[in-house]
Amino acid sequence: MSSFRYLRINSNIPLLANNLIDGVISRNYALKSDLKIKWVRPEKVPFYKPQNSGDLQSFPEINRKQFLLEFQNSKELQTADENVKKLFTLEFAPKKFTNKVFYKSMEQRVKRHEYDYSSIEVKLARWTGVIRAQQELIEKFPRNKWLKIALKELIDKRTKHLRYLRRWDYKKFEWLLETLDLVYKPLPTEPFQVTRKDSLQRLTGIYVDNIKSQRLEKYRLQLESEQPAFLEEKIRNLQYIRDEQKACGVEVTVTFEEIEQVKQKLEDLKAKNEKRSSELENE
């Protein structure tokens, strides 16, 4: 502190007023802004949430009165006892059998032909089914590590293969997004770690830009309001010049059309102003 005081007294360095507190150089590296900008840190969304994974649908309601997938075409079961039939429904089987039915229905949506099990669209449909089933499960057991890892890896794998498909076959990629109800977003163009300082700098930039555009708009309106008076003055002056040139017998440089043009412009401007004022009143 004393060395600063010494500097203040004994040097000829010009100091800015805002750097000076009680005759001492104040620090200016951690300057706080006076602007009342409120920054709200965005809440962190877990990776498995549908808004991050890109799923627009969740696991649907499946009719649990239907038979297990393996027994749906069984002829013996059709003629079996009612209790036996009941035992072979999804109601009496673990959840994974219901999931299987869902995976199958997802594959069925996009299959190329009946024996298609390995095309890219079938793979993506199957993975989407598994992801939706696991997303439902992880909501109940958010601390299940195995599930968390499996889901993260599967979501990433699906995104990677969607990226490949986009490069190979764009039309199919778009059709698949529509059919499976997925959203595809690439990674951010510029990496940005959310910090208070950087975010506030960006918000201040937006604030300044808004002020600039507001002032420019205000100035534009002011100039436009002055335009009719200017045009009336112009008409009068042109008319005067024309009359004078005629009276003095010199060459007439101001044509009648020129004056008419200015009059037309004035009328257009008045109509435009009236329209704008009526719009403002309606708002």
């Binding site: 965005p42 778009e174 595809y184 951010p188 990496p191 975010s199 918000l203």
Partner: peptide
């Protein structure tokens, strides 16, 4: 299949710069 671009701004966001949400 329609021409490329029918999913723009609906489900495909590869035609815009994606930014990190900071506020």
């Amino acid at each position: 299949a329609p021409r490329r671009g029918w999913q723009e701004n609906k489900k495909d966001f590869t035609h815009v710069d994606i930014r990190t949400k900071y506020h």
